[in-house]
């Protein structure tokens, strides 16, 4: 196994993480989970460090998860209220981040509606950048918490059969999971309506997966079943005839889950459209790990902040 390289500055996607580094993160998250189980879940590891959450796209869940992670490590956590900040006065992303850094931020946790925005910041500014989701591109912390939950519940990720179902084409969660699952040796099947699936040639630069529009095929023997959130606007933009038809063809309900492996685990990146991509009985059923994903998310984000949120900061402009 490759020795983990922990000298990285940024967590942009999982495409540049080795299996060793991912496992190291998951092991560290184990220790963090113990901290979270304490009566007072707080350790001084990041005392004096400042973590700024800059969410250019609303996501209370992910933001709160990061804030809890930062606080559990005793970091100062500041939320840049993008709606009220200078971004609405037309300040560029780079200038906003420059200002935050000048104000003492050590780590920027950024969510952005545009793919690649964290790469822009990472290219120009020498500050630890953790990508909390960029457009349809990547969501590495979600993928890590999915991997953590799979390992915790099923004991391994290697050789797991994982079915990801739904709007793959627009999904940053699916993309980052592909890299992480590939690194750890899982087998992935992607399934959804053809309008929401990448075409075959579009997967050339991504890890190898099976692609199908037939749910039964994807579920056959699957040990992890991950329905993705169906954005309701996909129907409005004509990619789906109706939510009803989507439900009929792709909803994970009890009967369909029964076609998967008997101990199959159900994950969902949230927030769920219960009754659309997942039935209520499955969402809250015995095989669902959706609630523990939330706790695991905090532990994984603590691990990332602990491992990467330290380095000294100086201004280096990329060539």
């Amino acid at each position: 196994m490759t020795a983990p390289s922990l000298t990285r500055r940024h967590v942009l996607d999982l495409d540049d993480f080795s299996a060793g580094e991912i496992l190291h993160i998951l092991d560290t998250a184990d220790a963090m989970k113990e901290v979270l189980a304490r009566e007072v879940p707080r350790v001084p590891a990041l005392r004096g460090r400042t973590v700024v959450t800059a969410f250019y796209e609303a996501s209370t869940r992910t933001r709160v998860s990061f804030e809890l992670a930062a606080r559990a490590l005793s970091a100062d956590c500041v939320n840049l209220n993008v709606a009220l900040s200078s971004t609405t006065k037309g300040e560029s992303l780079l200038n906003t981040v420059r200002t935050l850094r000048a104000l003492g931020a050590d780590v920027i946790v950024m969510r952005h509606s545009q793919a690649g925005a964290p790469y822009l910041v990472a290219r120009y500014l020498n500050i630890c950048m953790i990508n909390a989701g960029d457009g349809a591109h990547a969501h590495p912390t979600q993928a890590l918490l999915d991997l953590y939950t799979m390992r915790e519940r099923l004991g391994r990720v290697e050789r797991l059969k994982v079915a990801i179902i739904g709007d793959i084409r627009h999904s940053r969660v699916a993309r980052s999971n592909l890299w992480g699952l590939a690194a750890l040796g899982a087998q992935v099947a992607l399934c959804g309506p053809a309008t929401l699936l990448p075409r075959g040639p579009e997967l050339e630069l991504l890890p190898t997966v099976a692609l199908t529009t037939h749910l039964e095929e994807a579920l056959e023997g699957a040990e992890v079943v991950m329905p993705l959130r169906l954005q309701l606007e996909r129907q409005q933009s004509g990619l789906l005839p109706s939510l009803r038809e989507y439900r009929e063809l792709y909803q994970i309900d009890g009967a369909r889950l029964a076609r998967a492996h008997p101990r199959a685990l159900v994950l969902h990146p949230g927030p769920m459209n219960e009754g659309v991509e997942i039935s209520t009985e499955v969402a809250h059923g015995a095989q669902s790990a959706i609630e523990s994903q939330v706790t695991n998310g905090v532990a994984v984000r603590m691990a990332l902040l602990y491992l990467y949120g330290h380095g000294e900061v100086s201004d280096v402009r990329a060539p």
Partner: peptide, 12 residues
Amino acid sequence: NEGAVSSRLGLV
């Protein structure tokens, strides 16, 4: 361009 690169980068 639509294809492998757009899909890899999550761009339209």
